[in-house]
Amino acid sequence: MAVKSIFISGVGGQGTILAGKVITTALVNLGYDVKMSEVHGMAQRGGSVITQIRYGDRVYSPLIEKGRADVLLAFEKLEAARYVEYLSPEGTLIVNDLEMPPASVLVGKEEYPADIVERLKEEIRNMIVVDAVGVAKECGEIRAQNMVLVGVLARVMDWPKDAFVEVIRDVVPAKYVDVNISAFERGWDMGML
């Protein structure tokens, strides 16, 4: 199988690392060669964070090139706009309908673009906007927004659902398993273009 690339962007603290762990564990279990690159250290402190995942028969680079990601999974709108140049013209953008203003906006020095979703919709053929926070709240745990988004991604990529449910059982602390599985399943239901 040709190598596929999933680019995840978000804000430090949103659970992108756990999302990456669930996705890659499932892909490894499915027998693919997989590589993932994460960001640690100072950059994690509420900054812009990215996780890059590549899988297929044989993967060399853990890094994705601009214009070559099959999916950009953005946990926040500004972080969708920032990294959308990594998306291939045929790729799918999954964006969490969430605004997290960075410090410069919080203090009124810069403006958060008001039209991100509209601008992206004009150009991107395949785009899914998800209120992951709202859905996660309904599931009973706002922090499960990451699993909602993983659910959408899994459906878009046509990955087997069971493989993910199994991994969530393995990697999520016991008392959050049910909430995370229901968040994943709600996301799965929304992953149709």
Binding site: G47, S48, K66, A81, E85
Partner: peptide, 20 residues
Amino acid sequence: KPGITFKPYAQLPSRPPVLC
């Protein structure tokens, strides 16, 4: 060079790390 890529904004507010 990279193929067609979509860059909707010339400049976006940066998001450097911050004290929690």
